[in-house]
Design a protein around this nucleic acid. Sequence first.
DNA 1: ATGACTCGAGTTTCGAGA
Length: 259
Amino acid sequence: MRIATWNVNSVTARLPRLLAWLESSGTDVLCIQEIKAAEEAFPYAELRELGYEAAVNADGRWNGVAVLSRVGLEQVVTGLPGGPEYDGVQEPRAVSATCGGVRVWSVYVPNGREVGHAHYAYKLHWLEALRDAVSADADDDRPFAVLGDFNVAPTDEDVHDRSAFDGLTHVTPAERAALAALRDTGLTDIVPRPLKYDRPFTYWDYRQLCFPKNRGMRIDLVYGNAAFARAHKDAYVDREERKGKGASDHAPVVVDLDV
DNA sequence: ATGACTCGAGTTTCGAGA
């Protein structure tokens, strides 16, 4: 089974690439983030033509997540149970489903904006709630993974130049401690292979030639439980999808499971 | 080759992304 995660940066703008990539990659289960469209505008029909069902949590201009599957879609949970609110609303940042015997969460962790900003505190609370919500599944014998845009680089090696991030979000000890607490539920960071260069970056800013210069970050992560880690045979970043006109600023992370 | 932001709302410019 091929499982992947991809921050598409608008499912509407990315639809031609999304459909083409699903076909060319042969992905069975895809977790997507930053749908940036209301649930009513989600392209269910186009995906169904390719054989994919979709569990969607999206409400408009920002955020939004989904699980796409051609191997079944059951036990859907929409939203993060116990998750915090921002500006009085629970934003659409999580959805989970069981697909062909594998349980997956698609998550879009809040960005945080600036250290000390209310959004930064919200980010840390959100990661705490995620840890609480997944701990039972992490402990299970069934293959399970949290996949998505975590907006945290787990180590200094996961950013192109650590000195460029002094004082910024995504690299702070508090954010990394929140990821470590999540792993402590029994999850392993499934680190993908880069298809070029030495480090498996998954995001490159659109500006200043970041992609050609490989000034990237690894912030799209796959955290799998023991059964998932045992079943996984390979993982890689499909950086080819970051190339050319109309690309997302994130590349898909692909995991092959022997299940 | 991989190339100097992009997206959606919505009206002319802006918040957000990270």
